[in-house]
């Protein structure tokens, strides 16, 4: 898998390059700001761009801007945004701007090679990847009358995995049940919460995140 890595902090970028190499990826380009990220991506045509959300010139949301530009200019190129912020708003904006093959993970998450490899392959397959910490915070949020109370323990587990962007098959593997069982769970969950079940992974993720964010 060909990867471009973008991070303005040199030792973080070096660490990412090493981790990606260990995960069996070929790092074809390195960048340190918005412009160089777009340039390296255009020149090297990687499968995935792994980038820091906060880079020069403004140190604010360059990663999200780059993701949107890459999604528009080179559709089919995956983007994995690494961030230090547990902010559902950023993840949702990312999925809005670049609906297919995109991921939002906390930076420390990728030190686990298995997680990194899993995220990259899902992104290459066109799925969404949302950091479990974000999903856990949304699911576990304090609510007056929690609409999630209507779900069983297992259904809540499935809902969280769906929010993380896992496909039915991946959910089935994770909780060791059959894919058919997951499909049944999914249908019931959506019915109980009054959501439209959408077969497309990324739209399903969007719907679930939006639901979790708005339910109070």
């Amino acid at each position: 898998m060909r990867v471009v890595v973008a991070d303005d902090v040199l030792f973080t970028r070096a660490g990412l390059v090493r981790l990606l190499a260990e995960a069996g990826c070929e790092v074809v380009g390195e960048a340190h700001d918005l412009d160089s990220t777009l340039r390296e991506t255009l020149v090297n045509r990687p499968d995935v761009v792994v980038l820091d959300i906060r880079m020069p010139p403004t140190h604010s949301d360059e990663g999200l801007v780059a993701a949107a530009r890459i999604g528009a200019d080179l559709p089919g190129t995956g983007v994995l945004v690494l961030s230090s912020y547990v902010e559902p708003a950023y993840a949702m904006r990312l999925i809005d701007d670049h609906p297919e093959g995109v991921g939002y993970l906390l930076k420390e998450r990728v030190s686990d090679t298995a997680v990194l490899v899993d995220a990259l392959s899902r992104i290459v397959d066109g799925e969404c990847v949302v950091d479990p910490t974000i999903v856990a915070r949304l699911v576990g949020r304090r609510r007056r009358t929690d609409p999630l109370d209507v779900l069983t323990e297992r259904e809540r587990e499935v809902l969280a995995l769906l929010a993380e962007g896992l496909s039915n098959r991946a959910v089935a593997e994770r909780i060791t049940v059959t894919e058919r069982t997951v499909e049944a769970h999914t249908k019931l969950i959506f019915q109980k919460l009054g959501l439209d079940a959408d077969p497309l992974s990324n739209r399903r993720v969007q719907a679930v995140l939006a639901y979790l964010r708005s339910a109070t």
């Binding site: 604010s60 902010e87 559902p88 708003a89 904006r93 915070r137 304090r142 609510r143 109070t216």
Partner: peptide
């Protein structure tokens, strides 16, 4: 909260609600 500056008041308050120890309806 960096999100306040970059995304605005509503997302920042949503995150505040996510983290709050009591239910917060914005």
């Amino acid at each position: 909260p960096a999100v306040l500056e970059e995304a605005g008041l509503a997302p920042a308050l949503a995150t505040l609600a996510d983290r709050a120890p009591v239910p917060v309806d914005v």
